[in-house]
Design a binder for these strands. Structure first.
Length: 138
DNA sequence: GCCAACGTTGGC
DNA sequence: GCCAACGTTGGC
């Protein structure tokens, strides 16, 4: 069981769009590192849904429902997609700022490698961010 | 809107 | 195989 974080620009595809649709084919990834992460996803893995550019926060939890297969939006065989389903919206969004402020989260790719759009995240980091969202005071 | 970081491309 | 030029992403 692995944990991941994917980014989406909310004015292109937001958590609400995702929830409304009930499922998403995660296409358009054109970066090898991100692609390799997509390929490593297994059905049932947990995935944080992060709003980039606007919002700048983790907003919800998704789950991998279908593992990598060729990206139907291109003939190029190098690229793949996975299918995600929404699990639940976070009680409150956890902002990038908060993540940056916590010593225990300094190693996550969201900070270290800000341009990567699909990244692995450690279980402890996942749990910590999740605990932030359940804490009204932060 | 700007710019830093980083990936990709192409000339040599 | 190196590196300059260029494009893209994403935070600020």
């Amino acid at each position: 069981m692995n944990h991941w974080l994917v980014k989406s620009e909310p004015f292109v595809y937001s958590w609400d769009d995702f929830e409304k649709a009930g499922r998403s084919v995660w296409d358009g990834v054109r970066n090898y590192q991100a692609r390799n992460n997509l390929k490593a996803m297994q059905k049932g893995d947990w995935v944080f849904f992060y709003h980039s550019n606007e919002g700048l926060a983790v907003v919800g939890i998704a789950q991998v429902d279908r593992e990598a297969y060729p990206d139907p939006t291109t003939d190029d065989p190098r690229w793949v997609v996975v299918e995600l389903v929404p699990v639940q919206k976070l009680k409150r969004p956890v902002s990038l700022q908060e993540i940056k402020l916590d010593n225990r989260l300094q190693e996550i790719a969201l900070i270290r490698q800000s341009r990567l759009s699909v990244m692995p995240i450690k279980r402890e980091e996942f749990d910590l961010i999740l605990s932030f969202s359940n804490d009204e005071n932060t």
